[in-house]
């Protein structure tokens, strides 16, 4: 009974996904995925599961945030690091970039993103993330996937950016250097991505640090309506031209920092232009 219910739900969601994104979605995807007879790849990604599970996200993408993408054709084939700004209390910016790459890129690509290592400790969330292709962000995992020519989304500002308070919107926080080391090591192009719209979706004005500590959360920002439920802002995703870097991955921090600054500057420029181009936050 339980099994049949789950199966019906899966089929229903799958149909929903296809009604929004086209029923040839699966055929449009790039490359072969190394799935075994149990329908998963070695990392636990399942295309069948993902095509059902993303239904609600495709709806958010098309109907709620009404996402517009610019320059998605600039994302090269093969291994690539998509580097984006991060905001919005819930990682919907990552989900929207994922939906864009899956449904709007030609060919479509199932990208991976790197999650924090507290995700595997969360029930249901951990399984959901693994089946849709999200991986704990260790350098080893990232290296392994890039060597398999996958597309990986990273947020070099890290956790502090997603839970940052409203006055800091569209100001890039400090970048980590890990992504640059990996790019140099695996000879991977970097595509800067600017997400416009997510930074207003859930304005938070205070961060209840003691509550966060109590719950084991990284932060506990409070929106005026309490929960981090997003407003229907309009998302605009800008994909920049790929940046190629050469040099030693184990170089001094100062040397790496120069390269990181190039990426950060490219992103800040794209963000500023995107903000200037839009007429309103909600449409």
């Amino acid at each position: 009974m339980n099994g049949r219910l789950a199966e019906a739900l899966k089929q229903g969601l799958r149909k929903w996904t296809e009604s929004m994104a086209g029923d040839d979605l699966e055929d449009r995807l790039a490359g072969e995925r190394p799935e075994n007879e149990y329908g998963v790849d070695p990392f636990g990604f399942s295309l069948e599961y993902a095509l059902s599970a993303i239904g609600p996200f495709v709806w958010l993408y098309q109907k709620y945030f009404r996402v517009q993408t610019f320059g998605i054709e600039k994302v090269p084939r093969g291994r690539v690091l998509l580097v984006s700004n991060h905001s919005g209390q819930l990682p919907l910016d990552g989900a929207m970039i994922g939906v864009a790459m899956l449904t709007e890129a030609r060919p479509g690509r199932a990208i991976r993103s790197m999650v924090m290592n507290w995700v595997p400790t969360l029930p249901f969330v951990s399984t959901f993330f693994a089946r849709v292709g999200q991986i704990v962000g260790t350098p080893e995992n990232c290296r392994r996937l890039l060597e398999k020519d996958e597309a990986i989304l990273v947020f070099p500002e890290g956790q502090k950016a997603i839970s940052k308070l409203f006055p800091l919107r569209y100001q890039l926080q400090d970048f980590g250097q890990g992504f640059m080391r990996l790019a140099l090591e695996t000879n991977t192009p970097i595509v800067p991505v600017a997400v416009i719209g997510a930074e207003e979706q859930a304005p938070a004005f205070v961060d209840l640090k003691p509550v966060a500590k109590l719950l084991g959360f990284p932060a506990f920002p409070l929106t005026p309506w309490g929960l981090p439920l997003p407003l229907p802002t309009r998302y605009r995703l800008y994909f920049g031209s790929p940046l190629f870097f050469t040099g030693r991955a184990d170089d001094d921090d100062a040397e790496l920092e120069k390269k990181v600054k190039v990426v950060k500057a490219a992103m800040q420029t794209m963000i500023d232009q995107g903000l200037k181009a839009r007429k309103a936050v909600f449409w």
Partner: peptide, 9 residues
């Protein structure tokens, strides 16, 4: 461990 990479060498 939740901190493990997917494939340990």
């Amino acid at each position: 461990s939740p901190n493990n990479s997917n494939f340990l060498t």
